[in-house]
């Protein structure tokens, strides 16, 4: 787990409060991974999260975590799910198959490209969810391009 920016942390606390009001079990825990955004640029972990998201998540959850016609908008979901909830769903997957819904999230528990970078992916999506990061490819802190 990594734990860096104060700025990001305060954003998370804000989200945590909202969750608490909503009665969600997912309050912000002290060692949840966080992201760093400086003048619209992100740290290497968050950037890697963006790329790993593109690898394993984009084809269902859409560009930039924005959702699709068949998978939820993660920038919304992460307002309601705790870090542990997110890790649990990514690791074990989940099924919501009813007469009207056919939503199945695969288990990524044995997928190296996901499990090794879980915190990076979470941090990226959390930054998106907290409105700290706009859509599109983020620029890295210290990068020219």
């Amino acid at each position: 787990m990594r734990n860096t920016s104060l700025l990001a942390f305060s954003g998370l606390v804000g989200a945590g409060l909202l969750l608490a009001i909503a009665g969600s079990p997912g309050a912000k825990a002290e060692n949840d991974p966080v992201y760093e955004v400086q003048a619209g640029r992100v740290d290497q972990h968050t950037f890697n999260g963006y790329r790993r998201y593109g690898e394993s998540c984009l084809r269902c959850h859409g560009p930039d975590g924005a959702g699709s016609s068949y998978a939820p908008n993660l920038t919304e979901s992460l307002k309601h799910l705790s870090y542990d909830d997110v890790v649990n769903v990514i690791t074990n997957g989940r099924q919501n198959v009813t007469k009207s819904q056919n939503n199945v999230m695969p288990a990524f528990g044995t997928t190296e490209d996901v499990i090794l970078y879980m915190d990076d992916i979470y941090g990226y999506l959390k930054a998106r969810s907290d409105d700290k990061l706009p859509r599109g490819r983020p620029k890295r802190i210290g990068d020219d391009s």
Binding site: G40, G62, P63, D64, G67, S68, S69, P134, R135, R137
Partner: peptide, 11 residues
């Protein structure tokens, strides 16, 4: 995949 928020980069 363009359903939710359209395509693209608003930056």
């Amino acid at each position: 995949i363009g359903m939710a928020a359209g395509l693209g980069n608003d930056t």
